[in-house]
Amino acid sequence: MLVEQIMTRDVVTVNPHTPLIEALQLSRARRIRHFPVMQGQELVGIVSDRDMRDICPSILDPNWESAVRSLHIRDCMKRDVITVHPWDFIEDAAAEMFRQRVSCLPVVQDGKLVGILTERDILHTLIDMMGVLAPSSRIEVELPNRPGGLADVADILRARKVNACSVLVFPGDTPQTRRLVLRVQTMDPRHIIDDITAAGYRVIGPLRTGGRAG
């Protein structure tokens, strides 16, 4: 999936001369945590609600009001902006956010700001991927970390004429294994579980007894 498929297109921006108070109010009213800072058509910085609050003088300061009124976005914005392209892969954008410790990335194409990608957008995609997209049962299987396991399970599903509405592969408990999580569109996955077991793979869950499920 590409960044443009999940980014927010309707971006609220500020400029370096926007008074801090105005931006703070906008942030609260629209529940926005990050503003790209634009000078005309050009992206010149980024500012978070945290950056803005951090430069506010203490409320105990007798000159608080005039001090706040003198502040502008240019006083707290970050000028060194990391951006992504709308055609970047989501996983690359997510890795970049994680590595750089930023929680949003402006999306820039041909020098123009076309969207913004936030942690929330990434989480939302992850929830969709891992979530219950259709009525289904969940099966978790340990696969050896070598070719063929996934194909075997796929063959079993095909033979049973059961559709999988999601398939995820996680690292296993050891480097030799992978953990396969399937959501299958049937209320009675017993045959599938039996077939997977008969094919020599360990079904981690569901368990038929009261032990701890994987």
């Binding site: 219950v132 009525p135 289904s136 049962s137 969940r138 978790e140 959501r183 049937t186 209320m187 996955p189």
Partner: peptide, 9 residues
């Protein structure tokens, strides 16, 4: 819970 059981919701 829908952890394993149909329909998951």
């Amino acid at each position: 819970t829908g952890k394993y059981l149909y329909p998951g919701t």
